[in-house]
């Protein structure tokens, strides 16, 4: 049984012209536990919306998103929040660290909505990503590469089953991008989490053994709005 199983997923938004525009229409998609998959997709193709649907940040119009035994679509918002906090790690393109919190607090805060804050684990994770000496630094005191490392530590802090990464190297230079990507993949491997990464960067895609084309999966043309 796959870790993530998606069937007939559809999401539409109100368009400025009136009416609804379908952004995501996925008849089927699945991801095995521990699998690492990169999704190729151009800007505006609906990749982020797709990840938001999996994470429960957005509610789907229809379909099912099964994460293990739980169907994200069937949950109310607090249920989706809980499932996201407990089972999903999220790495954003813009890192989305809380600027008023130290590195350690950023990781601890992420943990506190899931299984609970564990200072020792948070510290160990930050040491693991090479920021042991920067525990009490604020994001603004770090380089962009270091900030993304904090975001990676935060994403895997709750021992998620699935890590979603949305253009995680988009704001990094090539050297930092390579390091960050390697770190995300290693961290997921070590923690046993599956990784679903979306990007349009050919170099990032080239690093993955498994790559799918989001445009092929996302059949918006076949959807009835």
């Amino acid at each position: 049984m796959p870790l993530l199983s998606i069937r007939n997923l559809q999401k539409s938004f109100l368009s400025p012209e009136g009416g609804r525009k379908v952004i995501v229409h996925l008849p089927a998609f699945s991801l095995e536990a521990g699998q690492q998959l990169a999704l190729r997709g151009e800007s505006g193709s609906g990749k982020t919306t797709f990840l938001h649907l999996i994470a429960g940040i957005l509610a789907a119009d229809q379909g099912s998103i099964r994460l293990g035994e739980r169907d994200m679509v069937g949950l109310n918002e607090p249920g989706r929040d809980r499932l996201r906090a407990q089972s999903i790690g999220y790495v954003f393109q813009t890192f989305n660290l809380l600027q008023g919190y130290t590195c350690l607090e950023n990781v601890l805060l992420g943990m506190s909505f899931g299984p609970g804050a564990d200072r020792a684990r948070a510290t160990a994770l930050l040491e693991r990503v090479g920021l042991g000496a920067r525990l009490h630094h604020y994001p603004r005191q770090l380089s962009t590469g270091q900030q993304q490392r904090v975001a990676v530590a935060r994403a895997i802090a709750n021992r998620p089953k699935l890590v979603l990464a949305d253009e995680p190297t988009g704001n990094l230079d090539r050297r930092n991008a390579t390091e960050a990507l390697a770190l995300i993949r290693e961290a997921c491997r070590e923690s046993g989490a599956a990784l679903l990464l979306v990007t349009h960067d050919p170099e990032v895609l080239g690093a993955f053994e498994e790559v799918s084309d989001f445009a092929t999966l996302n059949r918006v043309g076949e959807a009835a709005a």
């Binding site: 918002e77 607090p78 929040d81 906090a85 407990q86 999220y90 954003f92 989305n96 809380l98």
Partner: peptide, 9 residues
């Protein structure tokens, strides 16, 4: 960000 990390409304 807090909400994305799982904080409830």
């Amino acid at each position: 960000i807090l909400r994305a990390l799982g904080a409830r409304r």
